[in-house]
Amino acid sequence: MTRRRFNLTPLIQAVLSLAGLDQTPAAAAAEAVTIAPGETTIFPPAYHLDGQLDRVTGVAEHSTRALEQVRLGGVPVANSATMAYRIPNAVFAVGRLYTPRMIDRQGGDQPRRLTVRLTQDIDTLALPLNEFATVFFGHTVIDGGASMLLAPGFGEAAIDSKVSAAMAGHVSRYFELFGLSHRPVHDVRIRNAWIFDDIGMNAHKSARLRWMGAQVRRLPALRSGHGVFIRRRGWGVQRAPENEAQLEDFFAARGFDIIDARDLTVDQIAARCIGATVIVGVEGSGMIHGMLALEPGRTVVMLLPPSRLNNMMKDYADGLGLHYAFVVGQTTPSGYTIDATEILRTIDLVPG
């Protein structure tokens, strides 16, 4: 039986952080590797009808109006470099990587512990997930998958044990398609822990995303040249329009496949999305299913609550080479609605 050793690194980090002595991962690193340089890019525009932004009453919790303006495209964007940082003599516990002066969160919303009993020492591991990629399905598949593709150059990929257990189902199937594996770990000391800054949509990350999409499109498809509507109601955080059921009927009558990701496997979802010309649905992680299945040059239309403007998926669409369009709903006393004809008119704005 492995002897468990008491460790105070999380407590020390908390105290030094309160004293203002905490470090960023870049500052804590003993070694930094530039995997891909940063670059300035002008991404294509987000297609939308005139007056859509006049309906907006608020933005998503992790966004700002200034950021959303940039996401509309057509302006230079400074995409950060893709970096790997080697953090020496670190502790990984409850989804957090610690040194006495640094913390990197990779474990969802698990409660923090100030002390830990270590189970083992490991020489080198690559920890590829960021904080969002341990909470939201879409980030796990896209950001987590893209960063896991970097891991083999630095060490065996490792993921917090509880996060790993929660990946059963859709996430694990996508990682299988991408040829990704990892080691579940908890309460360990890592002599050389590699973590990644892989946020910038530079050419290197875009190439990885397109490769991931190509692996999904190797699965068999049921049809081509059609549209797909991905249902949101009853799935994830509740932000579907009040009339989503009516929108489903509207698009089903026009030959669209209506998909509820909760009821289908990844292979079944892909079979219905591969070959589509357009994917429509409420902004959220479920749309990643359709976006990965679309060929570059196809279109995704995001439906947005007026109280929560969030075109974060535009970043992924740019990386995947997709046309991105959006429709903002109209506020009602109890939520919002989407005009189906506005979706059709928005699709008509997209060239080709």
Score class of each variant (00 low, 15 high):
1 M>C: 07
2 T>P: 15
2 T>E: 13
6 F>T: 10
9 T>K: 03
11 L>F: 15
14 A>Y: 11
21 L>Y: 06
22 D>F: 05
26 A>G: 10
32 A>G: 06
34 T>C: 12
37 P>Q: 13
40 T>D: 07
43 F>L: 05
45 P>V: 12
48 H>F: 12
56 V>H: 00
58 G>D: 03
61 E>H: 09
66 A>G: 05
70 V>Q: 13
72 L>M: 13
77 V>F: 11
81 A>D: 04
92 F>W: 12
93 A>K: 03
98 Y>F: 15
100 P>W: 07
100 P>Y: 07
101 R>H: 01
106 Q>N: 11
107 G>P: 08
108 G>F: 09
122 I>A: 02
127 L>N: 10
129 L>F: 13
133 A>R: 10
135 V>T: 12
140 T>H: 07
140 T>F: 09
142 I>G: 01
142 I>Y: 10
144 G>V: 00
147 S>F: 03
147 S>A: 15
148 M>N: 04
149 L>I: 04
159 I>S: 10
162 K>Q: 14
164 S>P: 06
168 A>E: 15
171 V>M: 09
176 E>N: 10
178 F>S: 07
179 G>T: 02
179 G>R: 07
183 R>T: 14
195 I>L: 11
195 I>C: 05
196 F>S: 08
200 G>W: 06
201 M>F: 14
206 S>G: 15
210 R>Y: 12
213 G>D: 10
214 A>C: 01
214 A>P: 04
216 V>H: 09
219 L>T: 06
225 G>S: 08
232 R>L: 07
233 R>H: 13
236 G>R: 00
242 E>C: 00
249 D>K: 12
250 F>V: 00
250 F>R: 00
251 F>E: 03
254 R>N: 03
255 G>A: 08
255 G>M: 06
260 D>W: 00
263 D>F: 04
263 D>Y: 03
265 T>H: 04
265 T>G: 11
269 I>H: 04
270 A>L: 01
277 T>K: 14
277 T>Y: 00
280 V>Y: 04
285 S>Q: 02
286 G>I: 15
286 G>K: 07
287 M>E: 04
295 E>M: 13
295 E>Q: 13
297 G>C: 09
298 R>Q: 14
302 M>F: 06
306 P>E: 01
307 S>Q: 04
313 M>W: 15
313 M>V: 08
315 D>K: 09
315 D>S: 13
318 D>F: 14
319 G>C: 02
325 A>L: 02
327 V>A: 02
334 S>A: 06
344 L>E: 14
